[in-house]
Amino acid sequence: MIRLKHVVLGAVGLPIVILLGAWVGFFNVGASSGHWKVTAWFLQLAMRSAVRTYALAVDAPKTLDSRGLPAAAGHFARGCAICHGEPGEPRSPAVMRMLPQPPDLALTVGDWTDAQLFRIVKHGIRFTGMPAWPARDRDDEVWAMVAFLRELPKLDANGFRDLALGGSQPTAPAALADCTRCHGGHGGGRGDLVPALAGQKEAYLFASLQAYARGDRTSGFMALPVTGVDPADLAALARHFAAQPSVSADSDQVPAEVIGRGQQIAEDGIPERNVPACSGCHIGSDKNPLYPRLDGQHAAYLERQLKLFRSESRGGTRFWHIMATAAQRLTDDDIRAVSAFFSKRSAGPQ
């Protein structure tokens, strides 16, 4: 018969015994023998349930935006493929021995909803090595990655390389090849959400790279390429892109009245809503070298940045806050119009 004394003894004693066991090194934390079937089952159950539950709070868009695919693919090649593999590229045997083993995502993405993938990519999975997204406040980037994961099962080796590495020149120095993966060989930016760097002001490019490196400007796509790069190399990269001839980015048709409205905002601001004229800082060669040129930049990129400024989630150089003030009172329609105007404006005689 079990007496109260035994229960108490057990309740106190068992944890002590387990602790003691852990301290002496009795438990095998080695990954070589794998999990017991029941352990593996339990861990999977807990992980899947947690993802399912937390994903309920995620507000998924009806259709995924495909404009960020090249950047997401470029990021996947460097930030994810090392563990999850990529089409046509066998993974290193070291990774295959990880516990749990990172799954081949081309085979498993179908098991998850968009919201669940978002949850996993944004927050990572504890105790498995699966990392969280490297930047806060950049749900837009996480959604771009989810859109890419949906494409992944359809890609063969060539399709993947085209999407991920399109413009890069394998002969370029390593640091530069890393950039052209997303920004393209002529610095035009691959995909509408990757900015053109060609012909941008050198001081602005350099200060922006430092802002990413310090974490003053957050982007999961840019965090990895600047991490651990010597400031002198960042300066050289800024010089390289600034010296490239600017390329006209977009060819989409935009109604003339939208462009006209954009021009009005750019040149006069919106006085009744206290929006200053953009031209006062962004047009003309006599402006501060840390104030970026916007001419010929991708409209979708400009829109995204203006929305980030408006919600105060776009940091930047030590001048970023004046731009946040300027963007505060812009509506979505204003943003679309003024972005379309600048994207169509050619640099002209500067």
Binding site: A46, M47, A50, V51, Y54, H123, G124, I125, R126, M130, P131, A132, P134, A135, R136, G215, T218, E272, R273, N274, E312, S313, G315, H321, A324, T325, Q328, R329
Partner: peptide, 22 residues
Amino acid sequence: GWAAADELGEPRATALGLTIAP
């Protein structure tokens, strides 16, 4: 939950106390 790093970085320090009126 299982989130690995909700606590990345620190919130952007400067809040803009600027309100704009006519």
